[in-house]
Design a protein around this nucleic acid. Structure first.
Lengths: 223, 223
DNA sequence: TGGAATAATAAGGTCGGCCATAAGATTATC
DNA sequence: GATAATCTTATGGCCGACCTTATTATTCCA
């Protein structure tokens, strides 16, 4: 009770935009897809968010977070990733489930709880999926990696983070050892948007391109 | 995301009924008051809860939890009080605020998080306000104390629990040292529903009757 | 026993966030 | 430059949970 400065829905839209493009313009269609709503609904919602000064919408071009919206989104993401750390490190909850479970908690978390939690956790810098946690002062430096789907064939790269949010996708990646820290060689890229063939921990695995988008890697790993 | 089997509103109604009367009949007017809604709204909601088999409403008599409703309410209360323990013991959050903050979190807590949290906390039996935490198997024994407002003048009693939920009320009681474990002598009860005069920790304090309702004491304390 | 207080019901309204359908605007591509 | 794909806007509808106002029913108590 009491907490919500912004509605859960508002927070989800803003966080999705931050996750998808930081400050960049995002197509409303993509956003709708990610949030599981129709494009029409997303359009309506974006109009409301625009009226509140949280996003800037350029018709037919896309939508971007305003400074204010970016601030709120960082705060939501901070809460979310702190809860991920707690769920994984302290409650020993299954890695693939923590995003979804933390996502519920984030909207019910008052500022003083967020900061006390951060303190309790020792002010972690990254969540268990490898993503950076925005700091209390709002500073936030996104990872500078590239999606595995964009890495060169033949290259050996290190997984920095996993960007996925759906539990089943996370489970799928975990089963293939595609976790932060993993060292991966891109053996082959099948034509026609076909799957990648990878070597992970000496094992060959196939990975669809759309899944490979979720795996953020560093092109020249420190070996 | 995902969690809510029952709406937040449903959970609040059921929990309030459990807090107010366990399985007993509660007047809809009282319930509405506690939840901060109009009696008309509470009536509507009780009808809906009745249709779902969670409560049994006898017109002009009041409403009581069904077995099913009692079960759900116990679960909500369990989540709530476990979070209270976490917020107080681990996050070091101010005692008077934990009810309200835990209340937000309770509705966003999936079963596996509840149980992992209980484990993490060492399966506590009571919350920081002294109230028992329903067990995972559903067993729940309410306190057998009486409200301080019903204690005899001259008696010396021990505070078992504080039943209040509003932060300002909790703060008020805390400032007067009326916390679980405190030993209190009822010095005087003013006439016409006037305040009680108490001796707490050697200090004389006045306490309005409606506030004294929130303080649950054991009549013959183990000294 | 007759009011006062309380409870219940009815009717109509608001708000947020979603839906479908349909029509029009723009952009991208061949 | 035409057509397909995408985006936007409009209209109307739904649901949950609340609101007000008004009417009727019941209970309690002096």
């Amino acid at each position: 009770m009491s907490v919500p400065q912004f509605s859960e829905s508002t927070e989800m839209y803003l966080k999705a935009m931050l996750e998808m493009g930081n400050r960049e313009v995002v197509a409303i269609g993509r956003l709708a897809e990610r949030l599981g709503v129709t494009p029409v609904s997303a359009n309506e919602m974006i109009r409301r968010l625009g009226e509140q000064g949280l996003v800037a919408h350029t018709p037919y071009k896309g939508v971007a977070l305003t400074e204010r919206g970016h601030e709120v989104a960082r705060d939501v993401m901070r809460r979310q990733r702190l809860w991920e750390v707690f769920l994984y490190e302290h409650l020993k909850i299954e890695w693939a489930k923590i995003y979804e479970l933390a996502c519920s908690l984030e909207h019910a978390t008052a500022p003083e709880v967020t900061e006390a939690l951060a303190e309790f956790l020792g002010n972690p810098k990254t969540c268990p999926r490898g993503n950076p946690i925005p700091a209390a002062d709002g500073s936030f430096r996104p990872l500078d990696g590239v999606p595995l789907s964009a890495a060169e064939v033949g290259a050996t790269v290190r997984v920095l983070a996993v960007n996925a949010t759906a539990t089943d996708v996370l489970k799928h990646l975990q089963e293939r050892n595609l976790l932060p820290g993993a060292v991966v060689t891109i053996v082959e890229a099948a034509p026609l948007q076909g799957p990648l063939t990878l070597r992970v921990d000496g094992r060959e695995v196939a990975l669809g391109l759309s899944l490979a988008e979720f795996v953020i890697v560093k092109s020249n790993p420190t070996q």
